[in-house]
Simulated assay, not measured.
Amino acid sequence: MDGFSSSFQYYFAITGGLAGIIATSLYRIYLKNNIDFEVFDKQSIVRFTFAFFGCCGLYYSLSELTNIIYDSIWTKTPFELEFISDHDGFFEVATSVFVMIFLWTIAYFTIKFIIEQNKNHLKNLELNATLREAQLNTLKGQVNPHFLFNSINNVRGLMLEDVGKSQEMISKLSEMLEYAFAKNTVDAIPLCEELEMVENYIALSKIQMEERLQYVEKINEEALQIPIPPMIIQLLIENAAKHGIANLKEGGTIALKVAKDDENLFITVANTGELKIAKDSTQLGLKNIRQRLRLLYGQRASFLLQEIEGGVVASIKIPLE
């Protein structure tokens, strides 16, 4: 007999649990379809209050109905739909129901809040990625016009002095532009490819400045395949030639050094001269470098331009991971 009683108790315990599932499922569906969790205005508060007490009432009614059915079957008395009439008993059951639904509501809102936060975070990441890509495309689009404008000015000045050298310069310029536009759609290229662009630019500049321009480089061979933003070294070399060597009657030297450690790639371009920025200069090339490094690597990358011991040194640090 005790086994039979225990079976009924387990059975109706499960039935009571199902009653809770039914009540909270309807509660959840109502909240999902009628409550705006982002705004949560007065109307949402009213609807939430209605849903909360409605769920409490439904859960209480289903639980009491289960108890009545259990008592009717176990005591073998006629089924009578009679809820608790004792005030203390009613208060105790109602309080238990209220607490359970209240705890369920807190859990539901917490989970809902976490899910919404994750969705918003993903949306922000997607938006930031789209914005970052748009900014990078804009910056990359600045490089070629900037380079082309300076090169055309150099060709124009040289044509008045030496037509043959001007033609050679135009041929070199054509090759460089082909390279520049081809790499304009990517965010990074191997260092070795960037060095090819630098060599072409130095050759182009020497057509105009001849022996006044000396170029030396020291490259860590282990760094040749490391990806870097395209045209970034070329812009530094161009800046050193245009604002440094070209303004010195006796000319000077541009020195490129590339080194690395386990965490960073170090690019240094040093040139003879002083750090002077013309009043009419937009510093487009330097701004472009800073902004691209920030967008691609955040605070992990750095760019510094300074005058050291009678020369100008531009230093870039790029993280390897």
Rank of each mutant, 00 (worst) to 15 (best):
C55V: 03
T105W: 09
I189R: 05
R156S: 11
I35Y: 07
T130P: 08
I219L: 05
A259Q: 06
D86S: 13
G298E: 05
L213Y: 09
S44R: 06
E210T: 14
E168L: 11
V97N: 00
E217W: 03
L295Q: 01
R28M: 14
N264Y: 10
M176H: 03
H87N: 10
A13D: 05
I228H: 10
V198P: 02
S5Q: 08
Q43H: 00
F109M: 11
S7C: 06
K140P: 05
T77I: 14
A246D: 12
E82V: 10
L195D: 06
K76H: 08
G310Y: 00
M176F: 07
N220F: 00
R292Q: 15
E238N: 12
F266T: 05
S25I: 11
E274L: 10
Q142V: 03
G285Y: 00
G57R: 08
L81F: 14
A134W: 06
N137V: 00
S44G: 11
K260T: 02
D261W: 04
L136S: 12
Y30Q: 07
I106V: 15
L148P: 01
G20D: 07
G285V: 01
L204Q: 04
L305R: 00
L256Y: 02
I189S: 09
E211I: 03
E217H: 07
E196R: 11
H243K: 10
N184I: 01
F102P: 08
K317I: 14
A246N: 13
V258S: 02
F4H: 15
G311N: 01
F52L: 14
I308K: 07
V143D: 11
A255H: 07
A188C: 13
S166L: 02
I101D: 02
K242H: 10
D71N: 09
K249H: 12
F98A: 09
M159N: 04
Q117N: 15
E309Y: 00
I101T: 09
R156G: 02
I115Y: 06
A278M: 06
L295C: 02
L62T: 01
E196K: 14
S7D: 10
R212N: 10
K260W: 02
N184E: 09
Y215F: 14
P230E: 04
A19Q: 05
I219N: 02
Q208S: 13
F53N: 00
P319D: 05
E116A: 09
G17E: 03
S174D: 07
N154C: 04
Y60G: 02
T138W: 07
Y215M: 05
R132M: 13
D187C: 08
N124L: 15
E199S: 15
D262F: 04
T95G: 02
